[in-house]
């Protein structure tokens, strides 16, 4: 099995699906000849040509609006928004249109568009190349939100997303685009949406995470495991629909929960997880739930490593929670 990084895995998923299904098209800024600023669409233009892979003008609302129209016509567009930070000009098309089309037409007009977008900090990108806007989309009924943490999942989840019938916001953790490497089977396979993965079994405290933060958590857990702690790590993989069964089963087992995410803390996805645990597993809790998150400030540049939850911060939360 080849060892690939996330970009290669995403690229491979797109290629496989474009070969398999002639309805799949890719559009976005610089995705054509250039192959995307992160190279995720590398080679697609050469293989599939200018009728399947489109460089668009610089207009995110146009990209998503047109992708919706394509989907209504029966194509399967996979638009790329170059950075999640630039998704806001398309916010109206995503939140008011894409998410509601099926519902508002009484089921007549589903619009299965899969929007790929790199997100997250840690690349020295400042405010506008670092944000984690997943909560806006999870909060929008009608959108599925998927965030892989490794190449295997990235490929399998993306293939599931494109084959599905619903709009998906597929957020790719760009900090670990190249750093996260792993064995990826060649050819076709899928990872179903809505299934979390237990990355490490443990008995003492459940650590919930997704995307690049999984790697931070693993690093933190290595530290605290050496001190004798035994945390369980759950990689959510899909934020909506959430695999609440796996989450709750783990918390019921350990009785403690730490939630790690990069986005600003307040009203972030961790708030939802925390509420879920309180609603469904409160009596199993032996310690307060801890959230380790980005601060409620715009994403900084020079101090970005202070801003992002570090392995130290996660480790501290695990220790505090486990020994509460």
């Amino acid at each position: 099995m080849p060892v690939w990084n996330i970009i290669q895995a995403v690229n491979d998923a797109l290629r496989i699906e474009m070969r398999r299904d002639p309805r799949v098209v890719v559009l976005g800024e610089d995705v054509g000849k250039f192959g995307g600023v992160f190279r995720a669409t590398n080679g697609l233009f050469d293989e599939f040509g200018p009728d399947r892979v489109f460089d668009t003008p610089l207009a995110e609302a146009g990209i998503i609006g047109a992708a919706i129209g394509m989907a209504l016509y029966g194509l399967k567009p996979v638009p790329e928004i170059q950075f999640a930070d630039f998704i806001y000009p398309a916010f109206d098309q995503i939140v008011n249109e894409l998410a509601k089309f099926r519902y508002r037409s009484g089921g007549q007009y589903p619009a299965p568009v899969v929007i790929r977008t790199p997100y997250g900090g840690g690349i020295r990108g400042g405010h506008y190349h670092s944000q984690s806007p997943e909560a806006y989309f999870v909060h929008t009924p009608g959108l599925k939100v998927v965030i892989p943490s490794n190449p295997y999942d990235a490929k399998g989840l993306l293939l599931s997303a494109i084959r599905g019938e619903d709009p998906v916001i597929f957020m790719e953790p760009k900090r670990i685009y190249r750093a996260a490497k792993g064995e990826v089977p060649e050819g076709d396979y899928t990872v179903p949406l809505g299934q979390a993965k237990i990355v490490r079994e443990g008995s003492q405290v459940t650590v919930l995470c997704y995307g690049a933060m999984v790697h931070t958590v693993v690093e933190a857990v290595e530290k605290v495991a050496a001190e004798g702690f035994d945390p369980e790590i759950v990689d959510l993989r899909t934020l909506l629909p959430l695999d609440s069964e796996t989450v709750l089963a783990s918390v019921r087992k350990t009785g403690r929960a730490v939630i790690a995410y990069e986005a600003p803390k307040t009203c972030g996805y961790g708030a939802e997880l925390s509420a879920l645990i309180c609603e469904k597993a409160l009596m199993h809790l032996e310690a307060p739930i801890a959230r380790v998150a980005g601060f409620d400030t715009p994403f900084p540049y020079s101090l970005e490593n202070e801003y992002m939850p570090s392995p130290d911060r996660v480790a501290k939360a695990i220790r505090d929670t486990a020994s509460f």
């Binding site: 609006g65 919706i68 129209g69 016509y73």
Partner: peptide
Amino acid sequence: IPQAVGMAWA
């Protein structure tokens, strides 16, 4: 409007 363009383009 952009949706119609996408449809026509498709």
